[in-house]
């Protein structure tokens, strides 16, 4: 793939690739158009007119704010838990070759590899068995479970790039395990953890399948949207919320991309 010859791509390939990308992006762009439509009873195209009044209406909706705030809190705490657990796992797996190495990798990936409905229903029946009432914390528990893998993948990739001789060099220069962790390991994996954390946040922020099973009365933003999708009641507000969700998830993804772009192409793996 690294041929320096100036390869010209065949026209058909160019068109097919462009069509594929357009297919991926046009529907999302459509969301932005609908957020400003004046039509509020149907999904009429082309929009009869444009207005920004729905932004204001949405801004003044307490239920939207409540759902957004819940989603942010859940994603924040789930991300923190995932960072701690994912990093511990990655450190153990990268530093030592031990029995069960592969089992651990599999275990971490499982919550995301299995269909979300299985993770959701399994956790739900476990909470039922344990007589745990559904609450903020049951949502966090579910989200953290499938967020671990994102942090883990980012951290493992970075640990792999951080050569073992750096750790030895640090110890050679008089630093014990804790000092080495603080002065060498942490600065080297920091951006990878941050990137993993961003992706975990994005993943948790719009997760809906597991959440429907682990939430009680609480509505996260995706749950709020799902209800609107099933029984549309306030189409214009939903349009605006959809646009905001797109913007809110793009930021951490872009940040994560810039944090890890030199070297590990890890951002996508694991979702």
């Amino acid at each position: 793939m690294r041929s320096d010859r100036s390869n010209r791509s065949p026209l058909a390939l160019k068109i097919a690739a462009a069509a594929g990308l357009a297919f991926l992006h046009l529907p999302i762009l459509l969301i932005f158009v609908y957020a400003f439509t004046t039509e509020d009873k149907s999904y009429q195209w082309p929009p009869p007119g444009f207005t920004i009044k729905w932004l204001g209406v949405t801004w003044n909706r307490p239920d939207v704010w409540e759902a957004l705030w819940l989603s942010v809190r859940v994603a924040g705490i789930a991300t923190l838990i995932a960072i701690v657990l994912g990093t511990l796992c990655a450190a153990a797996v990268s530093r030592w070759k031990f029995f069960g190495h592969e089992t651990i990798s599999l275990l971490v990936i499982l919550p995301i590899a299995l269909p979300g409905i299985i993770t959701g229903i399994a956790l739900r029946s476990a909470f039922n068995l344990a007589d745990m009432p559904f609450s903020f914390w049951t949502i966090v528990l579910g989200h953290a479970t499938f967020c671990i893998v994102v942090v883990y993948n980012n951290a493992v990739a970075r640990f792999r790039r951080t050569s073992g001789s750096l750790i030895e060099a640090s110890m050679d220069l008089g630093a014990d395990g804790f000092q080495t962790f603080r002065y060498v390991i942490l600065p080297n994996i920091g951006t990878a953890l941050l990137a993993g954390g961003m992706l975990a946040f994005a993943l948790s922020f719009d997760e809906v399948i597991v959440t429907t099973f682990t939430a009680g009365q609480q509505a996260t933003l995706p749950i709020w949207m799902l209800e609107e999708l099933v029984r549309p009641r306030q189409r214009p507000v939903t349009n605006v919320v959809a646009m905001v969700v797109v913007l809110v998830t793009f930021l951490p993804i872009l940040a994560a991309y810039y944090l890890t772009r030199d070297g590990d192409h890890v951002a996508g793996h694991g979702k």
Partner: peptide, 21 residues
């Protein structure tokens, strides 16, 4: 005796310079 308590230092084959410093 762990390496960090030995007054012995190493020049590594790949130099192992800390990239963040």
């Amino acid at each position: 005796v762990p390496p960090y308590r030995r007054n012995v230092n190493t020049v590594f084959q790949d130099y192992a310079l800390f990239p963040h410093l």
